[in-house]
Design a protein around this nucleic acid. Structure first.
Lengths: 346, 346
DNA sequence: GTGAAAGCGCTAACAT
DNA sequence: ATGTTAGCGCTTTCAC
């Protein structure tokens, strides 16, 4: 590391000061607006900067201020559209605050999590954005020990020391059920990936609760929850097929995520079942793919971009707090995105 | 920026040295293996490090060595699966070399490109990975001026000063045509997004050339190239519909990218045309979505992950070269991924 | 094998 | 309004 080519020496602030015939600190003051500078002096400095093609060295600046202008984002897999959309929101907000987004893609590997946090800390990161549930829970202690603030997205904090931004999972499910209900459905199935995360548990639990509350029957064989597989599209496919093999067929299905919905869609289509005329389908997340499949997927949107942005704002507040701020769990409202995978029941 | 909380002071190398009862430089030597150290001294240092929870400060290190451990990656849109897969490859290779991947998502906005390059340079980045064609061509001069090496991916260099990693576009098209040909197709259409990039032009040109070479007729109305729209799925949809309205219908179609193929697929399906039984479809890129749609898409894979990795290796070489290295254009072979969107012609 | 000292490019008191 | 000075935490000669 730290390679560098045989480059022309970069101009430093000292060079600029010399060229402009002023003191280095004056240049610094001018650049940082940390003192007022005569118009005439300003001019000279500006010219010198241009002439020398001067560029402030953030590394030196950061060393001096003991700060850092990088903002680490942890995701388990950047190729998952959910996380890439999140990353976009985080990057955008970070940029606005003058931070550079450093991407740590852990690939769902425990040991990488620790290594990457170590790297982030060595880079003097003042805070972390974590887009999923860390596999290695001991890391929370490590972070606390170094008093590094962090914010979680899309999952609930491991304990009351940490903050997070999550969508209102229960509300999302309610919106889905009520939407289908309005279309005349009451035979509704629920397909889910393994619920090892609280949001997933909440969705499932709320589905059952609201179905009962609305007076709809909740059939055991219509609540299909995967235990083994990890590929969400495959899960949806498997569960979709399984659902079709049931003697009673629901008129609609809600899934725990869009990826599962897409798998289910493929299962239905490949069995000759028409969507939405024979069965309606609503997903969860609203990833970009949802609008790409045919029929396009009606779904419950998690405003990922906004959540990414919001998380940065909260983190910045935590970082600048002179004392341990009270952690916050911010709940974001979900939103129904109506597309073409649902139809009224005949 | 440069926020920081009221944190407990981090241990420095000086603290460690003091604790271990040795000189700071000895600790440095131990850490960097830049001199041999007595086992006994090693032990003391190790213990001090552990006791104080010491972590090297990369910012200070980078200032001293005038290096940088960040590697900027420029993409136009990280939510585009093509770029997120690329990013994964780049991040992976960067990490292996001890670099942190900094993500610059320009959102296809000219002015951001300049701003972001400026930020990257201020961070003392020693080289850049650019995953697409910069919109603002003047930036190449700026980069040259600062003698910052860069490597392009998926596009050809603007001139012979720069390096890039690209797939063999012609070969990809040949593979597609020959594959369809083997299935008995010779009435093949080609649908393309606006060919403002050389790879796209090459694909189109090669399609025509190889069709002729194989003795297949090339019909004007079967070569549909979008001029206006930017959303590739919409483009595919529009072009797909247009193709269906033509009096003569081809038995197969090749598209300039998977996103276009997915749009075309939707167009066919929504017109009641069965894929692959009535029309075969092959895409280009092999983005993750290709395997998610129904029927899953047969396509020409660009090994994005590998290309990302390779680009980092080449860039590192350029960065460490003491003198202007001769630029390279590395051609990567594409690969046919057979799925379910193609069938033999009856 | 270990240590003393210089300094990377910058900010921030503190003077003037 | 501008300048002087003292480091930030580290690497790297160069002595010993």
């Amino acid at each position: 590391m730290n390679l560098r080519r045989h480059d022309k020496p970069k101009a430093t602030m000292r060079d600029v000061a010399w060229e402009a015939g002023v003191a280095q600190s004056t240049v610094s003051h001018y650049l940082n607006k940390t003192a007022t500078v005569t118009p005439e002096t300003k001019r000279k400095i500006r010219e010198a900067i241009k002439k020398m093609d001067y560029r402030p060295n953030m590394v030196a600046r950061n060393l001096k201020t003991r700060g850092s202008s990088i903002l680490p984002l942890f995701v388990p897999d950047i190729t998952n559209p959910f996380y890439s959309e999140l990353a976009k929101g985080v990057a955008d907000a970070a940029r606005r605050k003058g931070f550079d987004l450093v991407l740590y893609d852990t690939g769902y590997q425990r040991n990488r999590e620790g290594d990457y946090i170590e790297m982030a800390l060595r880079q003097q990161a003042g805070g972390l954005v974590i887009g999923y549930n860390l596999l290695d829970e001991r890391l929370w202690d490590r972070l606390e020990q170094t008093s590094t603030p962090a914010i979680l997205i899309d999952v609930y904090p491991p304990n009351d020391l940490w903050s997070s931004v999550v969508v209102d999972n229960e509300e999302g499910i309610r919106i889905a059920v009520d939407y289908l209900s309005r279309l005349g459905h009451h035979d509704i199935a629920y397909l889910s990936e393994p619920p090892y995360l609280l949001p997933l548990i909440k969705r499932q639990r709320e589905f059952i609760r609201v179905m009962k509350e609305r007076g709809f029957e909740v059939r055991r064989e219509w609540i299909l929850v995967e235990k083994q597989q990890v590929n969400r599209v495959k899960i949806g496919f498997t569960l979709g097929k399984e659902l079709l093999s049931s003697p009673l067929r629901p008129t609609a299905v809600i899934t725990s995520s869009d990826l599962v919905a897409i798998g289910a869609l493929n299962a239905f289509l490949s069995s000759g079942i028409k969507v939405p005329s024979e069965i309606s389908l609503v997903g969860f997340d609203d990833i970009i793919l949802a609008s790409y499949v045919h029929p396009s997927l009606t779904t419950i949107r998690q405003p990922k971009f906004d959540m990414g942005q919001r998380s940065v704002e909260i983190l910045m507040k935590l970082m600048s707090a002179s004392d341990q701020e009270t952690p916050v769990v911010e709940i974001i409202p979900p939103q129904l995105i109506e597309r073409h995978s649902c139809a009224g029941v005949r």
